[in-house]
Design a protein around this nucleic acid. Sequence first.
DNA 1: CGTTAGATTTAGGCATGCCTCAACATCGAT
DNA 2: ATCGATGTTGAGGCATGCCTAAATCTAACG
Lengths: 246, 246
Amino acid sequence: MAGRKGSVLSIESSSVQDYVKAIYASTEWQGGDVTASHLAGRLSVANSSVTGMVTKLVDLGLAEHRKYGPVGLTPSGRALALAMVRRHRLIETFLVTELGYGWDEVHDEAELLEHTVSDAFIERVDAKLGRPRRDPHGDPIPAADGTVVYPVAHRLDGLDDGHTGRLVRVSDDDPEVLRYLDSEGIPLDADLRLGRRGGQSLLDLHVGADGARALTVDAVLARALWIESTTPHQGCTLAESSSTQR
Amino acid sequence: MAGRKGSVLSIESSSVQDYVKAIYASTEWQGGDVTASHLAGRLSVANSSVTGMVTKLVDLGLAEHRKYGPVGLTPSGRALALAMVRRHRLIETFLVTELGYGWDEVHDEAELLEHTVSDAFIERVDAKLGRPRRDPHGDPIPAADGTVVYPVAHRLDGLDDGHTGRLVRVSDDDPEVLRYLDSEGIPLDADLRLGRRGGQSLLDLHVGADGARALTVDAVLARALWIESTTPHQGCTLAESSSTQR
DNA sequence: CGTTAGATTTAGGCATGCCTCAACATCGAT
DNA sequence: ATCGATGTTGAGGCATGCCTAAATCTAACG
């Protein structure tokens, strides 16, 4: 009656890692709680599978959960999640920088490799890349000690007309978005200015320091782009500054 | 009564790949038959596990096997094996060339990565490395179409006194051997000359074009080194020339 | 030609990790 | 307070891949 059911899972299981990562991603970026069904959707898994796995995570000391409540991470769960995120983003950066992958192609490959590669591999990649702070999509790469520095950024759909800033992050949830930006020649760090809103969900975006080029942005795109402001703002803030984990 | 038992395994299973690779390695290098127990030893698996898996390989059209007989590969089994060997050796080469691994450190990492990485990854690595023909240990890297060019080499323990040649392959079975060669400063392609045999299993090896340095070689080492002769020879030939698969 | 040692195969199990289905608990909102 | 959405649990399954133990076969020896 000590160790629950037969739960013999370890921290090395890639399922465990995926669950922890999913909880982290849903918890720390958007803030707020993760529900079991949210996780089920994100992981493309049945609801009851989540319940079962979360029980194991709790047994492993990685997650916190009371019945019918939201799922959260313990400090060591967060540490594991950060380690996995670090792996993922370093691998993505490596694939783009060293092997010529497009930023729209790296996610799936990294998703597999992050579970396979050794710590030594990650360390060597990190060194070779010069200890990068951001991955190809602008996501911050946690340091080996768990420190993450989030850019002070705002999602495009939360900003006002006339706002100017620099594109510092593109969500890699949708490779289509990435390919679209490629086709429009808009890279990370591009200077942007918001034009007049064209309705509830459409807005104009002027590209380049001179704002010469303009394009119309739909709701999907607007939710994928994060801008670091050069004008005062209000709205959806991505994160304030830095945090340390362990 | 059609598809045997429920065997739904695919060619993607890393176990399947490991078994096929093991059969290939035992069959094509040393020549001759592979027995089930040989495979069991090589794969550190129980005997009966081999039987079960070989049945699946036969179902998949990868292996040939009659009860109580030796195990062999079908053409598509050989093609799969060569693809895996290619992956393994390209990854090893990549780790050494691009990430600064030592040649004694790459085997295990490659063993994991070869099952994970995509075809696109392999292609990009191959291109980045300039389509290498040999891995860090001197093993030939099969081309994408299954062509392999084996060096015309002889194992050191099958050569006579006074023989001269170039070190073209070191077995990576034993990382100790690799580290020893490192410590003695003997790289691949070193010029070597066999000195007087010191007994049944000991022999002297002179290193460098001038043969200035000499060391004593024991049986273990002698079986790990392959030499491309610059003098006439006889004895254990590694392979004759090239072969095409597919 | 038997016997027997060793190799090989079968049978029965275990662990992981996922699934569905169905019964039930809980929460929140009307 | 009751209904419906959301969460939990258990039973029953499936697939992979490994194990041990016992049965069976082969081959080599006297």
